[in-house]
């Protein structure tokens, strides 16, 4: 769209971003507050981070969350990529409507419904609830996000590359591994990261599917937050924000480097 930028455009974008970031910035600043009271500034201090180090329950919860997130994101990436390939490459198969319905529905399905229903399945199957049930529920929730990301990459890249390989006698599996997979790899990586952060973040579904001994970080934070603001929680949140920010910066740098390398390769091929 147009290059003609008015002051109105600039102001609305600036205000929008300020609205999105101000609360987070305030939270981060207050995690370094030396005073226990929210409005009283007691000088910069690491008191709450130190308190966190001795909070065994919080550390255990964080560790449980990280393990569940890594496992469910990996499973969701495999399943979601398969689903994306099926939806873009297999044309009209029987049951396609049901399949695509099941893939897209979790994107908007209220979490209380997903959580309740998957818990009732586990009860019906008489499974012990805990680490594995949360992981399965998170895999189901996040695989649709992976599918959407990978699918949009699959439809946007040049199909003639695949066709050329096949025409030259390359078997389908090899074509997929040597041509398709490297092309969609950035989308798969982005899908994994999104699935990971969604799992790390989820409170509602984890609350339904958890069992004794499997407290995740959001469940822990939620039970503390219900009792009011605590400076330790500010510190936990700041650490989580820092991890996400670092991850995002690192992945965008990697993507940029990959793009530059590709460009250079394309240039040298032309010469």
């Amino acid at each position: 769209m147009g290059r003609k930028t008015s002051a109105f455009n600039v102001v609305s974008v600036a205000l929008g971003l300020a609205f999105l970031y101000l609360p987070i910035v305030i939270l981060v600043i207050y995690s370094f507050n030396g005073s226990r009271l929210v409005t009283v500034w007691g000088g910069w201090s690491l008191t709450w981070y130190r308190a966190l180090l001795s909070d065994r329950a919080m550390i255990d919860a964080a560790w449980a969350s990280l393990r569940i997130a890594a496992l469910s994101a990996s499973a969701a990436t495999v399943l979601g990529t398969c689903a994306a390939i099926a939806l873009t490459r297999m044309g009209r198969f029987r049951g396609r409507l049901l399949f695509s319905g099941m893939v897209y529905a979790p994107l908007v399905m209220p979490e209380v419904i997903t959580g309740l229903s998957v818990l009732l399945l586990f009860v019906a199957l008489d499974v012990d609830r805990g680490f594995w049930t949360i992981s399965i529920a998170h895999t189901t929730l996040t695989l649709c996000f992976v599918t959407v990301i990978v699918q949009s990459r699959l439809i946007s890249f040049d199909r003639s590359l695949e066709e050329a390989a096949m025409d030259l006698g390359c078997p389908p599996l090899k074509t997929f591994l040597t041509i398709t997979l490297p092309l969609i790899a950035p989308a798969i990586a982005a899908g994994w990261m999104l699935a990971f952060s969604l799992s790390l973040d989820d409170l509602v579904i984890a609350s339904f599917t958890t069992g004794p001994g499997a407290t995740t970080l959001p469940i822990r934070i939620y039970s503390e937050v219900r009792l009011g603001v605590k400076p330790e929680i500010n510190a936990v949140c700041t650490i989580m924000i820092a991890i996400v920010a670092l991850g995002t910066v690192a992945s965008s740098l990697l993507a940029k480097r990959g793009a530059m390398r590709r460009e250079r390769a394309a240039l040298s091929a032309q010469m």
Partner: peptide, 22 residues
Amino acid sequence: LVMLVILPFWTSFLIRVYAWIN
């Protein structure tokens, strides 16, 4: 700018709601 709009979505939902309690 698009990245800046997406970024908060990657940080925890719970944290962003909690930030407003402060």
